[in-house]
């Protein structure tokens, strides 16, 4: 992800009202992290597993935070249990910011990512999680606002899958 795209994404998260971000770092979108850390509007929570990242964000949602969980696409499979038994079952609005590794537009795609990546959207559909694909930084502000509105309307997790220019 180029620096200006990272800045645009971080600003859009703030504009959408996200104020609590749990994460397990990965490669493609990681440049947003120093920006979020430098801005006191965000409470940034590092974790050791996407499973706990989802559970912690759900807890924060239940006490009035507007949380997002930032993870690599493979993390979706690590936290499926937590999404299902906590976020979906209880109904906590959380925004999943997923680096869509192994997708067609992933600029770093390889045999290490593609076979698992192609299951990502199927898994989201199986869990009944609404999602959109973000590949154009020009649209990121609108997409984040739409996704945040949707998660509050549903009181459910909503996912944005970042690929294309976000994976440079």
């Amino acid at each position: 992800m180029e620096k200006d795209v990272a800045q645009k994404t971080a600003a859009a998260l703030k504009g959408a009202g996200i104020d609590f971000v749990t994460y397990l770092p990965e490669t493609r979108l990681s440049r947003i992290l120093p920006l979020l850390e430098a801005d006191s509007a965000f409470k940034l929570v590092p974790t050791s597993s996407e499973a706990e990242a989802v559970t912690i964000a759900s807890g924060a949602a239940l006490v009035g935070k507007q949380p997002a969980v930032y993870m690599e696409g493979t993390g979706l499979f690590v936290c499926s249990y937590n999404l299902l038994t906590v976020s979906i079952r209880v109904g906590t609005p959380i925004l999943l910011l997923i680096s869509y590794v192994g997708s067609m537009a992933d600029q770093k795609n390889s045999f290490r990512f593609a076979p698992t990546g192609l299951r990502t959207e199927q898994q989201l559909r199986a869990l009944n999680i609404e999602y959109q694909i973000a590949e154009d930084p020009a649209q990121v502000e609108t997409q984040l606002q739409n996704a945040t509105r949707m998660m509050h309307a549903l009181k459910q997790p909503v996912a944005l899958l970042f690929t294309g220019a976000f994976t440079l």
Partner: peptide, 15 residues
């Protein structure tokens, strides 16, 4: 029950 109803869709999603 809510976990049970997601079982088949998830197995199918994983192939």
């Amino acid at each position: 029950v809510r976990r049970g109803t997601r079982m088949i869709p998830v197995l199918e999603a994983l192939g």
